[in-house]
């Protein structure tokens, strides 16, 4: 049976296999090496352009630790929970001293939440309208769809803080600029997502509504909206989480909320006030995330039960 091991070409199959394998490995190695070289080249270029040099790091890194050391609160166990003293001040080392401006922060955090809520409601409303105009299957006319899609791309392409910068110039320093900036960006981001949901909706109910003599609005309201509403709600809740984060930072350019205080504190002080306000922001963001996650889950749960 010796000739069983011979291929018709008269070659040893083991040798043939080995040769193929070697070729395959060589090809893959070359491609991988090329990619690795590209990757390393890009990394080297990036390190050079970003000025991420050892000397910069050597001088910079110790300063990071120094800075974080200086902004940590220092507690004194003797007076940790002490109230105000005779002069109406908290003793250094107490929590009261650390959170001297607690009520100011709380007011600003409240404002931040309101900004996010208003912006989410307005942005969602705008996004609903724009998504029906932008979705390819529901757009009333081709050119309307194109304009709506370009507009949505612009709104979500420009970061909210840039809109805020411009709007602060327009309406002045204060939360209005922030609300409007976040509204515009959220409308862009949600409008894109919504229009994708609409494009995946069944068009049969729309045909049905058309046949009863429904206008475009009625076709959308009765044919599409009931299908997409659960997804819309879930996306809007998720957007609220993002908007809370955004409204906490638009204050960096003067657009209201806790961000103004945050930026002021970080820029002008390097003591425990920085961690005090940062901690509150982290708590705010985490709490909103948890709440919204729970709301979304109960929403999905309700859907699944139906």
């Amino acid at each position: 049976m010796a000739d069983m091991s011979q291929t018709p070409g008269g070659q040893d199959p083991v040798a043939l296999f080995e040769r193929h394998r070697a070729q395959l490995i060589r090809d893959r190695m070359t491609a991988n090496l090329l990619l690795l070289a590209l990757f390393i080249g890009f990394l080297a270029w990036s390190i050079w352009i970003a000025d991420f040099m050892p000397d910069r790091l050597a001088s910079g890194v110790p300063r990071i630790f120094e800075y974080f050391g200086s902004v940590m609160p220092s507690f004194d166990t003797d007076v940790l929970f002490d109230g105000r003293n005779a002069e109406g001040k908290f003793p250094p080392g107490s929590i009261g001293f650390w959170y001297n401006d607690f009520w100011k922060y709380i007011t600003l955090i409240w404002e931040t939440i309101l900004m996010a809520l208003t912006a989410t409601l307005l942005g969602t409303g705008l996004a609903v309208v724009l998504s029906f105009l932008a979705a390819r299957n529901t757009t009333p006319a081709g050119w309307v769809g194109t304009i709506a899609r370009r507009f949505l791309e612009f709104c979500r392409g420009v970061p909210e803080i840039l809109f805020a910068l411009v709007l602060v110039f327009w309406v002045g320093i204060g939360p209005l600029a922030g609300v409007l900036a976040i509204t515009i960006h959220a409308a862009g981001a949600l409008g894109k997502l919504f229009s994708e949901v609409v494009e995946n909706a069944s068009m049969r109910p729309v045909d049905g509504m058309k046949a009863v003599g429904g206008s475009w609005f009625e076709q959308m309201r009765y044919g599409i909206l009931p299908q997409v509403l659960p997804n819309f709600t879930s996306y809007a809740l998720w957007r609220f989480e993002i908007n809370v984060r955004a409204s906490a930072v638009v204050g960096f350019v003067g657009a209201g909320g806790i961000g103004t205080e945050l930026s002021h504190t970080i820029s002008f002080y390097s003591d425990d006030r920085v961690t005090a306000v940062l901690l509150l922001v982290v708590l705010l963001v985490t709490a909103i995330d948890l709440l919204s996650e729970r709301a979304r889950h109960s929403l999905i749960g309700k859907e699944a039960l139906k």
Partner: peptide, 13 residues
């Protein structure tokens, strides 16, 4: 970003 600007100064680092 702002925190690190305070820590290591202005710039891409």
């Amino acid at each position: 970003g702002l925190v690190f600007v305070r820590a290591v100064g202005l710039g891409p680092l």
